[in-house]
Write a protein that binds this DNA or RNA. Sequence first.
RNA 1: GCACCGCUAGCUCAAUGGUAGAGCAGUUGACUCUUAAUCAAUUGGUUCCCGGUUCAAGUCCGGGGCGGUGCACCA
Length: 505
Amino acid sequence: MANAPDPIGARRARLEALRERGVDPFSATRFEVTAHAADLSVRYADLTSGPPAEDAPEWALAGRIMSVRGQGKVIFADLADRTASFQLFIRLDNLSAEAFEVFRELERGDIIGARGPVFRTKAGELSLSVTGFEVLAKSLQPLPDKWHGLQDVEKRYRRRYVDLIVNRPVLDVMIARSRIIAEMRRFIDAHGFFEVETPTLVTVAGGAAARPFLTHSNALDIPLSLRIATELYLKRLIVGGMERVYEIGRIWRNEGIDRTHNPEFTMLELYAAFWNVRDMMSFNEDLMAHLARSVHGSETALYRGDAISFATPFRRLGYLEAFEEYGGLSRDQLLDADACHHLLHDFGIPESPSHSHALDKLFERIVEPHLIQPTFVYGYPVVLSPLAKRMKDDPLLTERYELFAANMELANAFTELNDPDDQRRRFELQAIEKAAGDHEVPPPDWDFVTALEYGLPPTAGIGIGIDRLVMMLTGNESIRDVLLFPLQRPLPPGDDDEAEAEEQT
RNA sequence: GCACCGCUAGCUCAAUGGUAGAGCAGUUGACUCUUAAUCAAUUGGUUCCCGGUUCAAGUCCGGGGCGGUGCACCA
């Protein structure tokens, strides 16, 4: 213990050394930042090598020291802020001897603010010639390898903050996610929608087919679920006369976890009175194209080696036509429950508990693999769509589409069913499926039927999984890589971390 | 839930069943234009855990933990 190398102990010793020089790294409360690294790189892109001009303006940068290259009476350091990193040039001649000694006590990971003019070194690197600096926080933990960063996937998820520090592309993805959502709001707001917030704690988790998380209210002493969709509440607001509403919110589904599923995820749901599914389709493709352009920089996103073009208009493909085209299957085979189960057998797919389930499995197998470029698949069978309005000239199908790209479902939209009697019958039918063993079928929400009885205007609605959209636009193939803190099983007790028993000096 | 793969120093990775190693980080020193700085010296291990086989286990076997991928599940 006496001679064992101890990186954290060494850093604590450095902390004491700073304090002995009258610098307490944890006493600073603010620092006036006047520039970010990326801004300076652009502003001084054409600067030629040489010492800074007499009248060169001083800038103040703040961030984390990512590397230090000491060279006697000159020190080079890289300071990273949220935009990029920028080289600091510290020379004894430009500072007091005391300040220079303080800088020599700093190390990789520490957070400082630095002031000085920008110049370009002989080696051609744009740099801040430091005339003054403040220590803003000391890092007591050693950072991972400066070249390889943090590779261990598990550690990256569990300690995302370290991942963000040392793996710049991760920070870029998370910033892109933030911008995608912000840009989405801007676009939607510009079309006259109100953003609303509906309950996440509900007594009936409806609006989708999924198993909910269960919880309990102490005050009311009743069981509660976390919502699995926002749909039924948002449509109540259309009944209430809000006309155009949307919610970007967290949804919880107590189901499997894999590359494309996290138990909590973010969904946009949006409803517009007096629109039908065709109106929604064009709104949908305009939104996608806009996001791709403004956030991704181009209408084309590279995903799994495919160049996905979000240039409008997207391809339109009928649901039944798709089966005909890719599998040679007929309408009669698909819309008949018994024939459909035979098809499952023909394709070697395990038994399904219901007609709707069977259709989904078949679609997944036969059609989905072909949907690379953005495609609206429209005209879903009514058995698959308990909340969608039937087609006027084909009552077995609904005015519903799903948007696919790169074999992933990106959006689901339909003209909303507003006939309360039809809605009631479909809920009753679902109740039978639930009784037959389909766990994912939600319990009927009878108050929703009552709401429809007050009168829901013709309305189109859409749901877009934000996480998968971000995956698509940032080229990530795992949902965990677009979530800041994906759910991880907790480590066994004691395995958690070093339990630092050091107290004495 | 099932299958496969992974887990070795703070980080990235080595090690035909035969003394656990390297680079980076750390520590000490030198250096006034470096940028994976360089040079010299140097520290560092419950090989995820428990048990077994063996003269000998990081390595083989059994059980467990955590993670990743695939399948199942998830309209």
